[in-house]
Design a protein around this nucleic acid. Structure first.
Length: 409
RNA sequence: CGGGCCGUAGUGUAAUGGUAGCACGAAUGCUUUGGGAGUAUUUAGUCCGAGUUCAAAUCUCGGCGGCCCGACCA
C-alpha cells in the first residue's frame, strides 16, 4: 500500500482524553479513533491488525471443526425473556422500535444460537458440532474503561458447542483449550489458563489471562506448578501457599483474553433443545461456550509489545510485513516495492515526498511494522534493513529480503 | 450506580473577571530529505443553556461530554 494514499491519522502527540496506554498509542499511531466512551473506529492500519487476529482465530477454530456463521446483532426481546436475561442481565442494551417493539443488541448469543441450531439438530448423530462467529457485540457497561480493553461495543469471537453427553462436552472443551493455546502462541501472547468462577451459569469456567499492568483482574499464580486462579474465587493473598505444590503464591494483574464455559443445559433447557438418543429417547442437549475478545486482543498486544517510541507488532498481527521508506527521489524504491509485493509480502511504502526523513522514521517506529527498509542516496545499490524490535541496522540486497520473507512467513 | 478530576481551533497548550494567544496539523507556492525540515500566505476555537457583572474562557447553577478510583463485569 502506498502511504501517500493512506489518510494520515498519525498524531504527533498523545490524545489527552485517554489514560490507558493501549488507547493512547493506538490513537496516536493512527490505528483507532474514539467516537465516544468505549466506542472506537478502526482505521486502515487498525483494521488490518484486527483482520490478522481474526484470521488466526478463524484458522484455529476451523482446525477443530468449528463452522463459521454470522448471527444478527439485532435480536428480539422474546428470546431474552425465555432465559430470564431480559431483566436479569444488566449490561443488555435494549432498544425500542417506532412501533414499540423491543429488541436487544446482542452482548453474547446463546439466546440466538440455541433456537437456530434446533433447526438442524434432531439426533445424537448430529452431534457434536461447533458454531462460531466473529461479530460486533454490545454491552451497556456501567463504566467503559481502559481503551479498547472494555468497551460498550467490541468485536468478539463466540463459539458454541453441542453435545449428547458430558464426556463428549469434556472432550470438546479440552480441544478448545488446545486451540486457544495455539492462538495465543501465534499472537505471541503468554496467556495463562486460569480457574475462574462460573458465574450463575456453570460450575466450570476457565479464563485465559495475559498478565500485564493494565489488567483489571487479580490472578493468583504459582510459578512452580503454574496453578492459576482468579482471585474472585478465593481471597488468597500474596505469600499464601499453593494448594497443589505448597510453594508461595504470587498475585498478578491480568487481562481476560478468553473465557470458556461448560454451559451444560443452562440454555438448551429454556429453549427445549432436545435430541433422540440411540434408544429413540428424547434428551436435552449439552452445550459449551467459548469467547474471545478480538478487539480486546489488539489492545492487549499494544499493552505488551511496545517501547518508548511506539508499537512493536508481533509477526502474525502486524498490519504489514515491511515498512519501506524512500528518502528523496529514488526510483529504485518503487521497483523494490513491486518486487516485494510479487513475493506475496505486504508492504507499506512510504512514498510521501513532503515528509522529512525524521518524521518518516518517527512515524515508522510509532506504527511498529516488524521490518523497516530504507532506500536513500546513502544506501546505494543496497537496501537498509532494520527489525523494529532490534537496534541492528544493516545493508542488504534483495535476495536477503526474499530469504528473510520466506523464512518468517 | 457512589466518589474524584476535567472540558479553549483538527491536536497539544496559554490567558483566573478586562483585546482569546502560541505551537503542531491542515491548505497553496517555492526550497529541502538520515530522526517529528525551512519559508511566505491562508485556515480554524472558549461543550450547551441560564444566572451574577459595565464586562465571563475565567464566578454560580443546571445539562451534556471525557478520564480515573470503587461497585459491577455472560
Amino acid at each position: 500500500m502506498l502511504q501517500s494514499q493512506l489518510p494520515n491519522f498519525i498524531r504527533k502527540e498523545f490524545p489527552k482524553d485517554e489514560e490507558s496506554y493501549n488507547a493512547k498509542i493506538l490513537i496516536r499511531a493512527g490505528f483507532i479513533e474514539k467516537l465516544m466512551a468505549g466506542v472506537y473506529s478502526y482505521l486502515p492500519l487498525g483494521l488490518r491488525v484486527l483482520k490478522k487476529i481474526e484470521n488466526v482465530v478463524k484458522e484455529e477454530m476451523n482446525k477443530i471443526g468449528g463452522q463459521e456463521i454470522l448471527m444478527p446483532a439485532l435480536t428480539p426481546k422474546e428470546n431474552w425473556e425465555k432465559t430470564g436475561r431480559w431483566d436479569g442481565l444488566d449490561v443488555l442494551f435494549k432498544i425500542t422500535s417506532r412501533d414499540k417493539k423491543e429488541y436487544a443488541l446482542g452482548p453474547t448469543h446463546e439466546e440466538i444460537v440455541v433456537p437456530l441450531s434446533q433447526k438442524a439438530l434432531f439426533s445424537y448423530k448430529d452431534m457434536p458440532f461447533g458454531l462460531y462467529q466473529i461479530q460486533t457485540k454490545f454491552r451497556d457497561e456501567p463504566r467503559a474503561k481502559s481503551g479498547i480493553l472494555r468497551g460498550r461495543e467490541f468485536i468478539m469471537k463466540d463459539l458454541y458447542s453441542f453435545h449428547s453427553d458430558e464426556k463428549d462436552l469434556d472432550k470438546y472443551y479440552q480441544k478448545v483449550i488446545k486451540a486457544y493455546k495455539a492462538i495465543f502462541k501465534r499472537l505471541s501472547l503468554d496467556a495463562k489458563l486460569v480457574e475462574a468462577s462460573g458465574g450463575t451459569f456453570s460450575k466450570y469456567s476457565h479464563e485465559f489471562q495475559v498478565f500485564c499492568e493494565a489488567g483489571e483482574d487479580k490472578i493468583i499464580y504459582c510459578k512452580k506448578c503454574h496453578f492459576a486462579q482468579n482471585s474472585e474465587i478465593n481471597t488468597s493473598k500474596k505469600g499464601d501457599l499453593c494448594p497443589k505444590c505448597k510453594s508461595s503464591l504470587e498475585i498478578f494483574s491480568g487481562v481476560e483474553a478468553g473465557n470458556i464455559f461448560k454451559l451444560n443445559t443452562k440454555y438448551s433447557e429454556p429453549f427445549s433443545l432436545k435430541y433422540r438418543d440411540k434408544d429413540g429417547k428424547e434428551k436435552i442437549v449439552l452445550m459449551g461456550c467459548y469467547g474471545m475478545g478480538i478487539s480486546r486482543l489488539m489492545g492487549v498486544i499494544a499493552e505488551v509489545f511496545h517501547d518508548d517510541k511506539g508499537l512493536i507488532w508481533p509477526k502474525e498481527t502486524a498490519p504489514f510485513d515491511f515498512h519501506l521508506i524512500v528518502l528523496g527521489n529514488n526510483p529504485k524504491a518503487k521497483k523494490i516495492y513491486n518486487d516485494l509485493e510479487k513475493l506475496g509480502a505486504q508492504v507499506l511504502f512510504d512514498d510521501r515526498k513532503e515528509k522529512s526523513a525524521g518524521e518518516k522514521f518517527a512515524q515508522s517506529d510509532l506504527i511498529g511494522i516488524p521490518v523497516r527498509l530504507v532506500i536513500s542516496q546513502k544506501t546505494g545499490n543496497k537496501i537498509e534493513f532494520k527489525e523494529r524490535k532490534n537496534k541492528l541496522v544493516k545493508l542488504v540486497d534483495f535476495s536477503y529480503l526474499k530469504r528473510y520473507f520466506n523464512r518468517t512467513k
